[in-house]
Simulated scan of single mutants.
Amino acid sequence: MPTTIPAIEDAQTLAQAIVDTIHEPLIVLDGGLRVLAASRAFYEIFRVDSERTMGCLLYDLGDGQWNIPALRLLLETIIPEKTAMDGFEVDHDFPGVGRRTMLLNARKVIYETSADSTILLAFTDITARRAVERNLADLLEHTEELLRQKQVLLQEMQHRVANSLQIIASILLIKARAVTSEETRLHLKDAHQRVLSVAEVQAHLHASGDLDQIEVGPYLSKLCASLAASMIGDSYPIALDVEADHGWIGSDKAVSMGLIVTELVINAIKYAFPTTRADARIRVGFDSTDAGWLLTVSDNGVGGVETAAPLVHGGLGTAIVEALVKQLDARMQVQSAEGMAVSIRHPAA
């Protein structure tokens, strides 16, 4: 059979012992909200003594420090209806203790053998936790503001760099038109196109608002359109097509890729079509998969050793392409039979 406590006094002693072993503040109230019992933690934390606590109305404790509107709402409205409430937050300035944020847990105890009831009211001090949360929220807000400022500064810097590159490209083009040496003119035009390829990345990033990633298809299309406009004349037409999937690449790698495409397209325009052809065509392709990406620049020109010579035997353009391919951790393959095709493959990390 269940063991019972033999006397009321013993039950009260046990109840008080249980209350005192709880580390969090706890008080027991009667139906009229007068204190029947309080834990040792309650006395220590709120700095009150038992003589001025036991039998007193809760709202009168500590010169009225517990006469809190939120606490009244809990005890006089919520508890009578629900009989229980967990995590009821109260923020209050307690005399002698200071500002505290408390979570209140309340239980209304109804007895089978009596019409009386009691309320158990437990307190959890979450002042430190809330302070940490506020500090973290402030830190997060400050960090987000710094990131926003950084983004604005980067965009401004990128915009200024793009403008500077356009100015440099214009100066190179003006110089190319002014010099008398044909060799010098060609070198200046090549330099002009190299600067434009870098400027195209900057312009594309500024338009997309993304400083980290760039969509390859639109970028290569704009770059090749710029190359075609400046290097392919109406009297000697060469179709320059771009076929690219929806792959993305880091903006730093996009600069290298743009320079590679610029060099290879310039090479094809110079050497692939020594005579006028109605079907002359250069194709720039980009394909990306889970295995990596593949960049190709091909033409349907004369092919053969002479077309590939600038890439095979060296030169400034060749050195630039080889250095950029190495920088991208990619591999280049050159095929020159029917036309010429340069493939640059980058495996997935």
Rank of each mutant, 00 (worst) to 15 (best):
L316V: 14
G301H: 01
D290Y: 08
A254S: 13
G292H: 03
S256R: 14
T318R: 15
A323Q: 13
G315C: 15
L311V: 01
A280I: 01
G258V: 05
A268Q: 11
F273M: 01
T262H: 15
V255I: 14
T275W: 06
G292R: 06
N267M: 02
G285M: 12
F273Q: 02
V321K: 08
G258H: 03
N267W: 01
G315K: 15
A254F: 11
R283P: 07
D287Y: 11
D287K: 14
G303H: 05
T318M: 15
A254Q: 06
M257F: 04
I269S: 01
I266K: 08
L324P: 06
K326M: 08
R283I: 14
T307I: 00
T296S: 13
T307P: 02
A308S: 12
A291D: 09
D252P: 01
A309M: 08
R283E: 12
G315P: 10
P310Q: 10
F286P: 09
V284G: 03
V312R: 11
D252A: 11
V284C: 04
L328Q: 07
A278R: 11
G250L: 08
A254N: 10
D290A: 14
L264C: 00
A272R: 04
A323H: 10
F286G: 13
D252M: 06
L316A: 14
Q327T: 12
T318K: 15
I260L: 05
A268N: 10
I260F: 01
S298H: 00
Q327R: 15
V325C: 02
G292C: 03
G317A: 12
F273T: 01
K326E: 10
G292T: 03
V305P: 04
G250W: 03
L294M: 10
I266H: 08
S251Y: 09
T276G: 06
S298T: 00
R281I: 01
N300H: 07
H313G: 12
L264D: 01
V312A: 09
R281M: 02
L324I: 10
A254R: 11
L259C: 11
S251F: 10
N300L: 04
G285A: 11
N300I: 04
W293L: 06
D279E: 06
T307D: 04
L259G: 13
Q327N: 14
I269K: 01
L295G: 04
V265G: 00
T262D: 15
D287L: 13
R283T: 14
E263S: 02
G301M: 00
G301P: 00
R277C: 05
V255F: 01
D299F: 00
S251V: 15
N300S: 07
F286D: 11
T289E: 11
R283H: 08
G301N: 02
V261Q: 02
V325P: 03
G258C: 03
L259K: 09
